[in-house]
Nucleic acid binder design. Structure first.
Lengths: 197, 197, 197, 197
DNA sequence: AATGAATGAGACTTCATTCAT
DNA sequence: TATGAATGAAGTCTCATTCAT
C-alpha cells in the first residue's frame, strides 16, 4: 500500500515544516533549535531525522516555502488579469502579500527576510532564492513587455530592466512593512500613482 | 592621559568592529563566533570583552554600522544636488551604494541584509533599523516635497507615500544585486526612466 | 514504560549527586567544576544537564542531602528512646553523626559546612538550611518539653530556648571535629556530663 | 624615613583587607572577584598585587581577621572578670559576639562561616582556624579549671572536655543566629540557665 | 519505524594575574 | 611605585545528531 504510506510521509513532512516555520517566524532560523522543532511538531527526535537529514535541510525547506508563497499567489494574479499596467500589477501583488502576511498562522514574510540573509552564506538557500526570484521577476518582465506592446511603457527600454525596478518594489514594500510598520498597499499605491508614468 | 587613551580606546573599538564586520560579511552574524572575532581582531578574549559586554553588543555595533553607511553617504548626495528629481536622487543613491559595496574591505550591504533579518527578533537591532531607515526615508520624502514644489510630482499625493515608494527601491536594488547579481545602477536607472513620470 | 524509566532516571540522578558530593567533599562547592562532576559521574555533559538545569541546582541537591542526613538519622533516635534526657539525646546524636561521617563514601559533614557558608549568599540553600535545621531543632525542643514534663528540666524556661542550646552543640561538635580533630562523642559526653544539670 | 613608608604600607594593606572583607561578607570568598576587591579598595590592580601575591593571600588575611575578632574580644572578657562560672563566661561571650556582629561595617561572623568551609580544603586557612580556635578554646578550658578549683565544676572530668562543650556553644550560637535568625544572647542564656549545673 | 536519552564538540564569557608605560 | 589594559586558560552550558531499545 504505497499510497497510504506516501500520504503519511507527506503529512509528517509538512507537520515538521509547519512546526519549523512557526519557530522561525518568531525566532529566526538560528535561534530555532531542533529541540524547538521537535517539541512544536509533536514528533520525536528520531522521527524528525527520519524525514530530514539535518537542520540545514529543514531550514532549506522553510526558506523554499517562504520564498515560494509570494510567488505562487503572484502567478495567479498575473495569469488572470488581462490589460495589466505596472501599477495594477504592483497594487495587486502588494494586496496579496498583505493577505498572506496576515494569515492566522503567522506572517511568513518574516521568514522570507531570514532567507535573504541566509542566502548570503548558504549555497542551497542562495540557489532557491535565485530560482524563485528569477521566476517571480520574470512575471514583472512579462508585464513590462505587455506594457510595451500596449504602448503604455517606453518600448526602447529593455523590459528586463523595467522588470528589475518593478520587482524591487516588492522587497522594498515588505521590508518597510516589517521594520517601519507604516506602509500599506493603499499608501504605497498612492505613492506609485504619483510616480509612475 | 585622556586624549591618548580615548584615541587608543576608539582604535581598539574600531579594530574589533572591523574584525567582526569582516566575519559577519562572510558568515553572517550567527556563524560568526567570538573566537572568530577574537582571532580576526588580533586581540585576546579578555580585551574584546573589555570593549563589548557581549556578542550581542558587537552584533548591534556592526548592524548599526551597516545600516548607517548608506545613510551617511546618501545624506551627502541630497545635501549638494539642487534640482533633484526622484530619478536623479535614486540614480545617485544607487551609484553610491555600489561604490560602498565595492570597497576593498568587503561588501557591507551583505551585513545590512543580516541586520534586516535580525531585526525581526532582536529589539536592539529593530530599534536601530527603525531609526536609520526612518531617517533615510525622510530624505526621499524631502525629495518628493521638492518635486511637488517644482511641479514635477503630483502635489495631491502625500509626500510620505511617495517617499515610501522611492525608498523601497533601495532595498529592492540591494537584494537583487546580492541575490540575482544582475542589476547595476545603469540597468536600474534605465528601468526607472521607463517607469517614472 | 514508566516504571523502568523512573527507576532509571532516579538512578542517574543519584549517580550525579553522588559524584558531585564526592567532589564537593574534597574540594568544596566552588572548586568543584562541572567537568569534575561529569568525569566523576561517568556521564556526558549533556546527560548531566538533562537531569539538572545548572550547577547551582546540583549544589542545592548536595546541600539538601548534606543537611538532611543528620536530620533523618536523628529522627530515628528520638522516636525510639523513651525516657530521653538532654544528655542522652545529645550523646546519641553525636554518636550517629560520627557514624555517618565515617561512612566509606566520605565525610558528608564536610559538605554541611560548605552549605552553611553557601547559605550566606544563596537563597535556595539558605531556605533548605532553614527548613532542615528548624526541623532538627524542633526535635531538641521536644526533648526539652519531655524533660520539663519529667521534672528533669526547669519548667519555667521556654523549651524553645532550651532547644536552641542543645541544638547548638551539634554544629559546635561538628566544627571542632573537622577543624581541631580532637573531639569524639566520648570526650564531648564527658564534658556534657560535667556541665549539664 | 622608614616609619612613614611603613605606616603607608600598613594603611594600604588594611585598606585592601577591609575592602575584601566587605565583599566577602556579602558574596563569600568565591563570588568575590579581584576586580571587586580592586574597585572596593579604590586602588589599582597593580597596587593590590604589590601588597598581596595572590587572591589566596587576601582570603587568608580576611579569614585570619574573621577568626581573630571573636578571639580578641573574648580574651578581654575572660581576663577581667574574676569569679567566672561557665554560664557567666558564655553569656559574656555571646553578648560580645553580637556586639561585633552588629558593628556598622557589617557582620564579620558571616565571614567566619566562609572560613570554616574554606578550611576544609585550604591548608593555610585550616592552619589559621586551628590556631585561633585552639587558642579560643583554651580560654574556656581555663574557665573549666577555675570552676573545678571553685568546686562549681565536677573535678573528675578532664577540663579539656568541658572546654570542648563550652566552646561548641559559640559556633552553635553563631550558626543559628545567621541561618535561623531567632537566637539572641538572652534566649540562649535562658536556655543555658535551664541546662547548666 | 519510532523513541528520546545520551553524546561531546564547541559556544560564550569570566577573571586572576602580568607588565609596558 | 603605580597604573590598568591586556592576557588566555578555564569555566558553564547548549544543541545537532545518533543509536540501543
Amino acid at each position: 500500500m504505497p499510497k497510504v504510506t506516501l500520504e503519511h510521509r507527506t503529512a509528517r513532512h509538512d507537520q515538521i515544516v509547519e512546526a519549523a516555520r512557526r519557530c522561525a517566524m518568531d525566532q529566526g532560523f538560528h535561534k530555532t533549535t531542533m529541540a524547538d522543532v521537535i517539541r512544536e511538531s509533536g514528533l520525536s527526535a528520531g522521527a524528525v531525522y527520519g524525514y530530514f537529514k539535518s537542520k540545514d535541510e529543514i531550514v532549506s525547506a522553510i526558506a523554499d516555502q517562504a520564498l515560494s508563497t509570494v510567488d505562487e499567489l503572484f502567478e495567479g494574479i498575473l495569469a488572470t488579469k488581462e490589460p495589466l499596467s505596472p501599477l495594477t500589477a504592483l497594487t495587486a501583488t502588494l494586496e496579496h502579500i498583505v493577505q498572506i502576511a496576515e494569515r492566522p498562522g503567522g506572517d511568513i514574510t518574516r521568514v522570507a527576510l531570514q532567507a535573504w540573509a541566509e542566502a548570503m552564506h548558504n549555497d542551497a538557500i542562495a540557489g532557491i532564492a535565485r530560482e524563485k526570484y528569477t521566476h517571480l521577476r520574470s512575471k514583472f518582465i512579462e508585464v513590462a513587455r505587455r506594457g510595451q506592446a500596449d504602448g503604455t511603457v517606453d518600448p526602447d527600454v529593455d523590459p528586463d530592466h523595467v522588470g528589475q525596478v518593478m520587482f524591487a518594489l516588492v522587497p522594498g514594500f515588505l521590508l518597510q512593512r516589517l521594520i517601519l510598520g507604516d506602509v500599506t498597499p493603499q499608501t504605497f499605491t498612492a505613492g506609485l500613482t504619483a510616480l509612475l508614468k
